[in-house]
């Protein structure tokens, strides 16, 4: 193992008795306090915040339009353009989920249906929102691009049963995803 010793800065006596540094620090934090209270915090206009400091007062002012593309909200299932269930119940998400929030019961696709070539689709697919930690691993592991982290961050439940989302709910939340996947049709 090789390592590079870090050269520590030499402290003068004034530094070592801390008092000056502490006083400086106290001034800095007090400045922030005053600026926050007088609504003159730095970068305030960047955030367009209407509250104290840099904060947006939440229910009145929302940051929905500022949500980044990669924001990880609640996981949802999506359908393809051809309204095919993209999930083939490979259960990789169930396997990877660190919180064990996902339960998949695999099932067979009706051979008469237009996407019979897919053969397999979930019979049941539940995500326990009480367990979900929004890590996004399910989205990352999905080989079929069937599970996506939505931008939904307001999950307030009045009923415990609603915390466990079933397949229908997840598809309703996920909607249709653009971009045709030819893997399971005759084009292959």
């Amino acid at each position: 193992m090789s390592y590079t010793p870090i050269k520590r800065p030499k402290f003068s006596l004034a530094d070592r008795i801390y008092i000056v540094a502490i006083a400086k620090g106290l001034c800095r934090t007090f400045k922030h306090l005053v600026l926050a209270l007088t609504r003159r915090s730095r970068h305030r206009e960047d955030f367009n915040s209407k509250g104290i400091g840099l904060c947006m007062p939440f229910p009145e002012q929302r940051w929905d339009e500022r949500l980044p593309e990669y924001y990880r909200g609640a996981p949802t299932l999506v359908r393809g353009e051809d309204s095919r269930e993209r999930c083939v119940s490979c259960q990789l998400c169930e396997f990877i989920c660190p919180a064990r929030a996902i339960t998949v019961t695999p099932g067979e696709v009706d051979p008469a249906s237009p996407c019979a070539k897919q053969e397999k689709a979930p019979k049941e697919f539940t995500i326990d929102m009480f367990r979900c930690i929004y890590c996004g691993m399910c989205e990352e592991v999905c080989p079929e691009q069937a599970i996506f982290m939505s931008q939904e961050y307001l999950i307030t439940l009045t009923d415990r049963d609603k915390g466990i989302r079933d397949k229908e709910t997840l598809y309703k939340l996920g909607g249709v995803r653009k971009g045709l996947v030819n893997k399971w049709n005759d084009h292959k």
């Binding site: 083939v88 119940s89 490979c90 990789l92 897919q118 053969e119 397999k120 080989p143 079929e144 893997k183 292959k188």
Partner: peptide
């Protein structure tokens, strides 16, 4: 090979 590992029982 069809590469349908996600639905293949052997995977």
């Amino acid at each position: 090979h069809p590469l349908d590992c996600p639905i293949c029982d052997q995977a």
